[in-house]
Amino acid sequence: MPSATRQLAEALIARPSVTPQDAGCIELIRQRLAPLGFRSEVIDSGPEHLRVRNLWTKRTSARAGARALVFAGHTDVVPPGPLEHWSSDPFTPTERDGRLYGRGASDMKTSIAAFVVAVEQFVAAQPDAPLDIALLLTSDEEGPAVDGTAVVCERLQARGERLDWCIVGEPTSVQRTGDMIKNGRRGTLSGRLTVRGIQGHIAYPQLARNPIHQLAPALAELVAIEWDAGNAFFQPTSWQVSNIHGGTGAGNIIPGQVVVDFNFRFCTESTSESLQARLEAVLQRHGLDCELVWTLGGLPFLTEPGDLVAAVQAAIRAETGLEPELSTTGGTSDGRFIARICPQVVEFGPPNASIHKIDEHILLADIEPLTAIYRRLLENLAALP
């Protein structure tokens, strides 16, 4: 018989929860946890045609003053892509060659299943443990991430909900489950720069003003800037151009404007305000006639080694013998919202080599260790003085 975690993971994978759809995943989890004493709030947010479903469910210890651990994750998945390229239906969980295939197998329905089974095992063994346990799930992580975890965190903050530790089940491992955990993430700050010129015939440049030519020296200067040197936990802040749009498509017209999309991935050595000020100073120094629109996608967060990091490391070590590497690399996650209201946030999950790809999968051999690590984490935190 497949394990309890695998059965639940397969039930979740079978639900085609392409973002922002939840496809019944949250209701399945809510029903599964209710007999353990979890009290649930289902929070819907966003416009009707893009409705996001969120779940906050919590089991409160009978011990007064118990600290709280939150398991956080997302039920939504990215689109599968061309179905004919998959070896099997992406929403029919399929075992093949020691792997479980299906969209969300690694990112992150197996983690959610492992959360639930680990909690079931822990509560059965220690029903009176001095630990509050909660789950925060959303169907808006792979999308805009506007109506998901951010909305739930705002509600929790408004009513003074206490959170002490959070584990986000993102697929953080590289080769084997347990070889890497994320104890922070870089922030993301995007900008759209429009440089205005004067359109004209390319044979009469004296009657026009080419915004691409005007932008070029400023762009070269921005590319050469060292924004910061990083620190012991973060690599240096990176500035990258993602798109440049200019011209009408004709070969004999000087364009009237050029639009540049760019992004900072920034560490805790810089702030969004300092980066904006430095970039805008370059534009002003070059005398550009321009407009700049900023979008702050998320602030960086960092959990330095302490109770939570030590508890996760000990659980991994006990189950796998691995010494996990601490890392802050990669993209953003919903940890950026939770870190605003929770002092210690760590991401840990299975290997990420196949996430967002055709034939996404997880090794069957990684499923039970993941559950056992989450269970040991609960035990370790419950045992803290």
Rank of each mutant, 00 (worst) to 15 (best):
P80D: 12
G160N: 12
D289T: 05
Q21V: 13
V78N: 12
S61R: 07
L189Q: 12
S274W: 03
D359Y: 11
T329H: 12
A23E: 01
P20M: 15
A310I: 00
T92L: 08
D261Q: 11
R96S: 11
F337S: 01
N183Y: 08
G247E: 06
R317K: 13
A216N: 15
N231W: 12
V346F: 06
G249I: 00
L50F: 04
L136P: 12
P305G: 11
T172S: 05
H85V: 10
P236K: 12
V346I: 03
E95I: 12
G169P: 00
T371L: 12
G46N: 08
G65D: 15
A216G: 03
E226G: 10
P80H: 12
V174F: 13
P130L: 13
C25A: 04
R285F: 03
D261M: 06
P20A: 09
R265L: 09
G73W: 13
P369H: 06
G197M: 07
N54R: 02
L50I: 07
S139R: 07
A218M: 03
L8A: 10
R63T: 14
S270G: 04
G197F: 08
A134Y: 00
H356C: 09
W56M: 07
E142Q: 09
E95A: 07
T320I: 10
A23T: 10
G184A: 06
A72R: 14
V151K: 08
G297L: 10
I198Y: 14
